[in-house]
Amino acid sequence: MKLIFGLGNPGKKYDKTRHNVGFEALDRLAQQWSADTPRAKFDSRVAECRIGQQKSLLVWPQTFMNRSGMAVQQAVSFYKTPLESVLVICDDFSLPLGRLRYRAKGSSGGQNGLKDIIRAVGSEEAPRLRIGVGPVPERWDAADFVLGRFNADEADDADEAIRRAAESVAVWAEHGIVDAMNQYN
């Protein structure tokens, strides 16, 4: 089974913020692949679906971004899933708006959700898909920036990036991280 985590913050207050593009990508995946109705499990909302031929679990952690590791660790332990079958989708303000970047493993790069996941699972080996939401404007606090919404000039680019991110997950699920990197980075 593939475990696909979209990171974000729960609650209406955070809908459509830069920090919640992971949630939005999962929403698209759920719709595109006719996922089951989400239910509560692993301190998350979870929904099963098939992405191509791959049985998959979509996971929206409800623990807030900085505590995402708890939900990931619970699901990975329950299903005894190897980390190469896990994908974490998150925002990245170091990437230009709309840019996608797959990585097979690595550090958190300052992304607090990834940092907590690495701490909780004890490894940097989990594949991740970063969705560019940056850059942070001069004299802006990074936290305020990622918790803000896209302005009117950015909305179409953000929506297109989320659409492409959801589309790219099928390549990752069926063909692996290298093919996803080659097609979408």
Rank of each mutant, 00 (worst) to 15 (best):
F42V: 03
Q73K: 15
R149S: 06
T17R: 01
I131S: 04
A30W: 01
R128H: 13
A170E: 15
A40P: 00
K16V: 10
D156N: 13
V171N: 07
L129E: 04
Y79N: 05
E138C: 05
S44Y: 07
E24C: 10
E138Q: 14
R163F: 13
P61A: 04
R99Q: 15
A152W: 09
L129T: 12
W172N: 07
N112M: 12
G176Q: 07
R28N: 13
S107T: 12
S56N: 06
E84N: 14
N112K: 14
P135R: 04
K16M: 12
H175W: 05
A173H: 00
R139M: 13
G69A: 00
K12M: 09
V86F: 11
Q62Y: 07
G122A: 00
L129F: 12
S44V: 06
E84W: 14
R28W: 08
K16P: 08
N9T: 02
G134D: 05
M70F: 15
D159N: 15
A166P: 09
L95I: 11
Y14R: 04
G110Q: 02
K2V: 10
S108M: 06
K105E: 14
E125T: 09
F93W: 14
V169T: 06
R67G: 01
V121N: 03
E154V: 12
K115N: 14
Y14Q: 04
Y14L: 03
L3G: 07
V86I: 12
P10M: 00
S108L: 06
A47L: 05
W172Y: 08
E154Y: 04
K16Y: 14
R139Q: 14
S77Q: 14
D91S: 05
Q74S: 09
D36P: 00
G122T: 10
G11L: 01
K55S: 14
K115C: 10
P96T: 13
R39V: 11
K80I: 08
R128I: 03
V171I: 11
A126T: 15
V169P: 07
K16D: 15
S123K: 09
